[in-house]
Design a protein around this nucleic acid. Structure first.
Lengths: 341, 341
DNA sequence: CTGTTAGCGCTTTCAA
DNA sequence: TTGAAAGCGCTAACAG
């Protein structure tokens, strides 16, 4: 119904309530110094007309904030990131803020555009999962607080929350090695990505600590989605001396690897017993029901979102206090859940 | 570095470039009627200072739009909705718009707040997955175009895009019945929800068409998450005469049901052969690898997001033209993928 | 307790 | 081609 031709303003409400715009403004701001009966009249007019104040105009006044937090993630449809976004949204909502969400798709240029746009919309702060390790745009400008999540960019000083990538990968890999595995494959995404390289380092370190070497032929990186991960898994399985276990550095690679295993099982060429077991950095739903054992390195993406938001909100609301201490760094723990045949 | 103390304005740029604010504005708007060399000077100053215009102030002028689309979904962390959001974001980004994302958590009150907030931020349009069938807040006001997705609210006239819930559920259920199943369980979310009731209707209709009746004891609704779905599944399995197949009306119920099956298998009390097979409305990753066959009713959430965005953008950019014809209704097809033992 | 004035950053309109 | 003035909707600061 009633698509208002002209947007309503304080003036309209003021007129309807028989008061001045200022009284309307004060009432809407909480009602300080406005007689209760007048407040009631104003609120009635607001309801009647269906008025809601223009937050953009409001945020134009100095000292008024936009109530917006810019969130840039690399892939909304990855459950890991969407759960992360949920955590940010929840925490931001607690302070009455909304999130402006953008998808970078691992494209530094899109990330750059996104950030400029966010700033243009006067977000109070930024929470981003950076796409790249070159960070000119990040270093360049942000005149608002910035929080990095999941990945850190060298040279950019900012609050950040990351996972215990290296330690988790080392522990998970160690569990496989200690169980007797000697040929362990590695599937990861782009090598330049912070989490990737940290997880690979953990993988390697577990070997080193035990005086074992890693066969480069078993390492495949660069898979960003489940399709390419499945192809990479196929290559590992086709080796003359295939791995007896495969470490998947994220859920995309784990899902792809598992799908490839499923394909081979369905073809009847090999049995589940002949297939490598998996270790997945990132738990995923029903991972416990797979035809081959899937151990997982579990963590809480939602909590990571909440913590990232907290870091930001502390700076925004904590006043000069929290702003004074240096950049804060949070490393969230991960939990290795081992599953065997 | 350089956290600007005072935000930069056109004036600062104008001063730096030795021109008037208007010239800066014109240059940034595309450069109509500005000498090329002057434009270059302005752009240099913009780069130099790291200026970006205040979109909020900009959108204050009449005729200027905010470039924002409000998106309210019920649960970001549900892959179905996050993929939907991705589709919306992609399509909106094509026209230079951003999405303001909010999570309602199936709470009508939060939805209401969210919409008011969105309108206050002068979104150009709204795309929402409504939480409820009572729609006073929806009918009430929206002075911007509204698109409903996934669910429709009776009495609210708005463009919408939904799935072929009823037909899909009927086809899926029919496939089970035609395969000889006579006791089919049903797990769904809140009965009041549009998709739920449509899918239940399809389930029932498949029975009716074959002259079969549905045992009410096999129908369980109200499960919103995987935990409660697992409990409900447990109850079905504990019946004296348990179902031989279970129809899960969405991915949350399917995942929960499957988890429960897995738990029982792990306990060794029963074998996979003794477990019901599943029919899931919503595909999910690796559904083909489950210990019992999972047939899926597959659809494209991302496409639904894109289509919803298109409906909205057509009204926004299509001018009075598209605004003239009545509300448009899109029903996206689903595909039943049958898997058997 | 209430109203008036002024101005946030931007751009449309009009004049130079 | 450029600039000056005016005002979008709102609210601090200052009257009254």
């Amino acid at each position: 119904m009633g698509r208002a031709e002209r947007r309503l303003t304080v003036k309209d409400v003021a007129e309807a309530a028989g008061v001045s715009p200022m009284t309307v403004s004060r009432t809407l701001a909480g009602g300080q110094n406005v007689r209760p009966d007048v407040q009631e009249r104003v609120r009635a007019a607001v309801r009647e007309l269906g008025y809601h104040r223009n937050e953009n105009a409001r945020s134009l006044r100095p000292g008024q904030s936009s109530g917006l937090v810019g969130v840039a993630i690399t892939n909304i449809s990855n459950p890991y990131y969407s759960t992360f976004a949920l955590g940010v949204e929840e925490e931001a909502a607690l302070t009455g803020r909304r999130i402006l969400l953008g998808n970078t798709g691992e494209d530094p240029e899109r990330e750059d555009q996104l950030l400029r746009d966010f700033l243009g919309r006067r977000v109070e702060g930024l929470i981003i999962v950076p796409t790249t390790t070159t960070a000119d745009h990040l270093r360049g400008a942000p005149d608002v607080p910035l929080v990095l999540a999941s990945r850190v960019v060298p040279g950019v000083e900012a609050d950040h929350v990351v996972l215990a990538d290296c330690a988790g990968a080392e522990e998970g890999t160690g569990a496989l090695l200690d169980a007797g595995h000697r040929r362990i494959g590695f599937l990861g995404n782009l090598p330049g990505i912070f989490t990737s390289s940290r997880r690979l380092r953990g993988f390697e370190r577990a070997h080193e600590l035990r005086g074992l070497s890693v066969d480069p032929a078993l390492i495949s990186t660069g898979q960003q989605d489940t399709e390419t991960a499945a192809v990479a898994m196929g290559r590992l399985l086709a080796l003359a001396d295939p791995p007896t276990a495969v470490f998947c550095a994220n859920n995309r690679n784990a899902i792809g690897a598992m799908a490839e295993i499923g394909r081979i099982l369905a073809s009847g060429e090999r049995t589940a017993a002949e297939m490598p077991e998996l270790m997945s950095f990132d738990d995923f739903e029903l991972s416990e029901l797979m035809p081959v054992p899937v151990s997982v390195i579990r963590h809480d993406a939602r909590e990571m979102g909440r913590r990232a938001a907290r870091l930001l909100l502390d700076r925004l609301d904590g006043g000069g206090d929290s702003a004074s201490h240096g950049y804060r760094s949070i490393e969230l723990p991960v939990e290795v859940v081992r599953r065997t045949r």
